[in-house]
């Protein structure tokens, strides 16, 4: 479904050239969910923006469903690092934003109530808790029923209960909607809970260090099982060596 082939991204040019990604290659099958972990500032967001068609790779190419990505695709949705809600739009307007821009008339009621946001449709983002804002960001992306969902640390800086609840929710929605997912995170447990494979990136400029298989992933019960803990331990070791 997604093929990233030898992708490099360099910000700026000349003296100030700042390489962010170096020859990244991996592929994600249809309906697969892959986690990407790496140190802060290594280039994870850059990778997602490139896959979403918002940044053009300096070298290499990205294919989605066999077509080279040359701009934003409407069947790909992006959940931004800080939810990226528009403060001048209400919860409902924010959730509807992507649909309306694409001139689609579907209702967002279903997704809003699935995310526990009913009753808050007319509130502005400033009136919500951080966890609710994240859920609005998720609603905005899922309302599109995308084939590909790109998630940039959707649970960062949430309390652990809220984080687990949203992780479970994403897992359920993935089963239900069958999208192909790429989840960027710096949380070890989250990567093991949600990634069928876990791609480990080096410090900036990001190269692929290791790809960890994680076949047990897929149910709520996986969290806390011996296999889960074992994977988390391996991942932690790999990240520590990564330095």
């Amino acid at each position: 479904m997604i093929e990233v082939q030898n992708v490099s991204v360099v910000y700026g040019s000349g003296e100030e050239a700042l390489p962010a990604l170096v020859e990244i290659s991996f592929s994600v099958g249809e309906g697969e969910m892959v986690a990407v972990v790496g140190p802060s500032g290594c280039g994870k967001t850059t990778l997602l923006l490139a896959i979403d068609g918002l940044i053009r790779p300096t070298a290499g190419r990205i294919l989605i469903a066999g077509e080279e990505v040359r701009g934003v695709r409407r069947d790909v949705a992006l959940i931004l690092q800080d939810a990226g809600l528009l403060p001048w739009k209400t919860v409902r307007q924010n959730a509807e934003l992507a649909l309306r821009i694409q001139k689609r008339r579907e209702s967002v009621d279903g997704i809003l109530s699935a995310l526990g946001l009913n009753g808050f449709e007319r509130r502005f983002p400033a009136e919500l808790s951080e966890g609710m804002r994240r859920r609005v960001g998720i609603a905005r992306a899922l309302a599109l029923r995308p084939r590909v969902l790109l998630m940039d640390e959707p649970m960062a800086n949430l309390d652990s209960l809220t984080r687990e609840r949203i992780q479970n929710l994403i897992l359920d929605l993935w089963w239900e909607m069958g999208f192909t997912g790429i989840l960027v995170t710096h949380d070890i447990e989250e990567a093991v809970f949600l990634g069928q494979r876990i791609i480990i990136l080096s410090p900036r400029p990001a190269r692929i260090r290791e790809i960890l298989e994680n076949p047990g992933m897929g149910s709520h019960e996986y969290r806390g099982s011996p296999e889960f803990l074992e994977r988390a331990k391996t991942l932690r070791q790999l990240l520590e060596e990564n330095g």
């Binding site: 979403d52 949705a77 931004l80 599109l144």
Partner: peptide, 19 residues
């Protein structure tokens, strides 16, 4: 981030101004 949020939905320039 507001610009990226709207651009990533496939918005036109005019929609970017409007939203």
């Amino acid at each position: 981030t507001h610009v990226v949020a709207v651009r990533s939905t496939g918005a036109s320039r005019w929609q970017l101004y409007w939203h």
